[in-house]
Write a protein that binds this DNA or RNA. Structure first.
Lengths: 146, 146
DNA sequence: GTAACTGCAAAATATTTGCATCCTT
DNA sequence: AAGGATGCAAATATTTTGCAGTTAC
């Protein structure tokens, strides 16, 4: 990455954090960096692994929790009980999530993608049920694995 | 419950187990009973609680796993990392799941329902992605909590 | 300087495994 | 009788909490 690009990335990270009233600390910068430099979602374990021995496991837990609360990342439920986290789009920060996109988990490479261009469909519920949020997770084979 | 109804239930349980080549043991009968006598889905913890001190925690783990493998129950992913299990409809036993229904989690009472009458919508994916299974979880307020 | 963040230790939970014993067929 | 299922003990793994030291602003 060019010096300029790195610079941009750091600026972006700092502004993301400040916008959420979070102080710019090393672990937050580093973890946010991991999310920004790749497409898919990350599980807690991925982050620990990618970060090397950089910081404590507890810090990862706390940082992820903070990010979720502030609306910087959101969780993606999957059937195998491993929660994954992905960056929210700009519009949904500030705790107000507008993540009306669907998620895709590849059964081959296990990568998880936010398909931002695919909006969640309207679901017609039986009488009496009132929907607040719809989560769609599609499992299948991704672009790269075919 | 009448003696007749209890009898029917036990017969149904035994036949469900035998159909899946499982021996009819006390813990399997008991756990299956819990699923049959209620509408919603159960988490591992619910089962331990409802079963009282009846059997070992390990047995619950193993029994649930067996039931999932045999297609007697299926898992429902939720955002809070607590996997829930629900009975499969008759048609989908034998490992071949046709659970094309959606799931509903009530944000008030935390109950989870299989809405068998609501089929999962067709999702149009971007070029290159190939869907194998679509999971829809709707969060909101259920019939009983309004 | 002060409030917030981090790392370490340790507690609390959750899940998995091995093995001897018991139960189902 | 034989194979599978269970219970117990214990090994692992995961998540949470408290607190003292450190860092961001």
């Amino acid at each position: 990455m060019s010096k300029q690009a790195t610079q941009d990335m750091e600026t972006r990270i700092a502004s993301l954090l400040k916008r959420s009233d979070l102080s710019v600390t090393e672990s937050r910068r580093k973890i946010l960096h991991l999310f920004l430099e790749q497409t898919g979602a990350l599980a807690h374990g991925d982050i620990e692994r990618k970060a090397g021995e950089k910081f404590d496991r507890v810090t990862v837990y706390r940082t992820l929790q903070t990010f979720v609360e502030k609306g910087i990342i959101h969780t993606i439920p999957t059937a195998d009980n491993s929660i994954r986290y992905a960056l929210c789009k700009d519009e949904c920060s500030g705790g107000h999530h507008h993540d009306h996109h669907i998620h895709f988990v590849c059964s081959q490479c296990d990568n998880t993608y936010c398909l931002d261009d695919v909006v969640t469909p309207d679901i017609k519920l039986p009488k009496g049920y009132q929907a607040e949020h719809v989560e769609v997770v599609v499992e299948g084979v991704c672009k790269n694995c075919r």
